[in-house]
């Protein structure tokens, strides 16, 4: 297959970026989206050009590093999928693809398709944990947890911290990400004790980082590769009172 790629190139956070257009040939359907970019980069090295920078690591949909907006959709149009799990068989031959970084002022572009998501780390630092000292934990089966509750907590804990929810949100809000962590810990007896303080601290940090607030556009749930549910936002709002 052949693809025309319009890729966002930006040298640094300070300078303006723009789209550059490339053509790539000989791509077969079993090639992943990122492998196609690898091949393009090989081509660029051959032509003495600086490679296109993009984030990735696991390439299995679990680390949350990959982060491309493809034809306007964070992680591409396919639902419940990270960019690294997209295969070129999803696209018709000779499609034009527009590839951009996450766009949000709290995620400044570092270079090309790579953004700075350290704001997410700082939100977790503000309270996204149970304050337990190593060594002070009780025997694990002393506190029982209903299976349904544990499963629900797990579903919230699946968030990979990719930031697609922010990228798609008209307000660049991080509410789904924050609510997922708050819900995960709120559901479990171990996390319940600190729940109110945690919710306040994390939402406050979200504001400090410049993320917008939630006005129920609900795009986030649709693009989330892990299917994090909006119910988490409801639960968070109930905790915040």
């Amino acid at each position: 297959m052949i693809f025309t790629l319009h890729i966002w190139r930006q040298k640094s956070p300070q300078v303006e970026g723009n789209f550059s257009t490339y053509t790539i040939n000989d791509i077969d359907g079993d090639t992943s989206f990122l492998e196609m970019l690898d091949q393009l980069n090989e081509q660029l090295i051959h032509q003495d050009e600086d490679c296109i920078v993009f984030d990735y690591d696991c390439r299995e949909g679990i680390c949350g590093a990959c982060s491309l907006v493809i034809n306007g959709y964070p992680h591409g149009e396919k639902t419940a999928t990270t960019t690294c799990q997209l295969y070129m068989r999803e696209y018709k031959n000779e499609t034009e693809l527009w590839i951009e970084p996450w766009r949000a002022s709290s995620f400044p572009v570092l270079k090309d398709l790579t953004v700075d998501r350290s704001a997410f780390d700082r939100i977790i630092q503000s309270g996204g944990y149970v304050s337990v000292h190593t060594g002070s934990a009780p025997e694990a089966n002393n506190i029982l947890v209903k299976k349904n509750t544990a499963d629900e907590a797990f579903s919230a804990a699946e968030c990979i911290g990719c930031g697609a929810c922010v990228a798609v949100c008209p307000n660049a809000s991080a509410t789904l990400f924050v609510a997922a962590k708050i819900s995960h810990l709120d559901l479990l007896p171990q996390g319940k004790i600190e729940t109110t303080e945690r919710a306040h601290n994390m939402t406050q940090q979200m504001e400090v980082e410049g993320f917008g607030s939630c006005s129920n556009h609900r795009h986030c749930e649709r693009v989330c590769p892990k299917g994090i549910s909006l119910q988490n936002i409801t639960r968070m709002n109930n905790i915040l009172g």
């Binding site: 337990v132 060594g135 934990a137 009780p138 694990a140 089966n141 299976k147 544990a150």
Partner: peptide
């Protein structure tokens, strides 16, 4: 065994039986 205790205390959602046990 201590590792499991520590992880559960941190809120790691391990799989559970209907009875609530791990």
């Amino acid at each position: 065994a201590n590792i499991i205790d520590q992880a559960v205390a941190q809120g790691v959602p391990f799989a559970r039986e209907y009875s609530g046990y791990l």
